[in-house]
Amino acid sequence: MTQDARVEAFVTAFEALRAEVEKVIVGHREIITHVLTAMFAGGHVLLEGVPGLGKTLLIKTLAEGLELSFSRIQFTPDLMPADIIGTNIIVEDVDGRKHFQFQQGPIFAHILLADEINRATPKTQSALLEGMQEGAVTVGGASRPLPAPFFVLATQNPIEMEGTYPLPEAQLDRFLFKLRVRYPAIDELNAIIDRTTQSRHVTVSRVMNGPTVLSLRELIREVPIASHVRDLASTIVMATHPSWAGSPEVSRRFVRYGASPRGAQALVLGAKVRALAEGRYNVSAEDIKALAMPALRHRVILNFEGEAEGVDADTLIGQIVEAAEAITASGREVFLR
């Protein structure tokens, strides 16, 4: 199979999966694209939005379009870590001897929907940490690998703060992207009404299986990136740090902690997927800039002044990207140097 064919196959698979999801989900094309981008990059996604915007439906539809196992956990305050990971139970064999047997929890699935993740206690939320980062969980001293590909899609509601536990920074950092699901436009809303209030039943076809997803993930990592594009990504991440010498004024004024190296990894991996999805063989600066917000908005922690001023993380990151572009060589005229 030639490289052109491999790339063509990726583009076809990406488009096909997006088309299947769009059969059910009206609008939110950017959200769907970013979810697929994160999946092919091997990351996890946190979807944030008010109830009723189709977050859960989007993930369920995606799972239907893939030949992969799917679990859904509705996070509640009384959910315990063992309810997610599983536990050892005593079983009796045919000889009457009793022994412990591990009963797998719902985390042992390819696609895990963690619905309203911020309703569970931090202890339960942290049960996902190892699985998200290592692709394995440890129970009773034994490490048990999770099925590959393992893809966590979590949702949370930003307005109902009562009875919720905001995700700790360590947990947030493990999500490749944080996507904000916004209200649909009026024509999209009309389409939703038409689609959901009629007797027509939409069936989603399975267009991809697990091994395909894994092979496409391998392809992603082969995409080359020029050094000046990589420099732009690292400069954007460094510019989120208020203590960095080249940080713009907005970072120094409003940011308490900047993005971690995982942020830079998310930027570059996401940019590689975006490039390949557009049929390109290399990463461009535009790819980096396009993914700066979903990759960094949950990794930038505002200080008190930023919170008091009501600074929006997206606006802040937009300004940081502009500043980083000016810092790197790509923003300067070549012949004046």
């Binding site: 030639t2 995409v223 020029a226 050094s227 000046h228 063989y281 990463v283 461009s284």
Partner: peptide
């Protein structure tokens, strides 16, 4: 050209180039 020429000039002679570089 979406940084294609710059990427080619940088990656074409690298020993760790991937098969995708040839396609690029």
């Amino acid at each position: 050209l979406a940084d294609r020429v710059a990427t080619v000039l940088e990656w074409a002679d690298r020993p760790d180039r991937t098969p995708l570089v040839d396609a690029l």
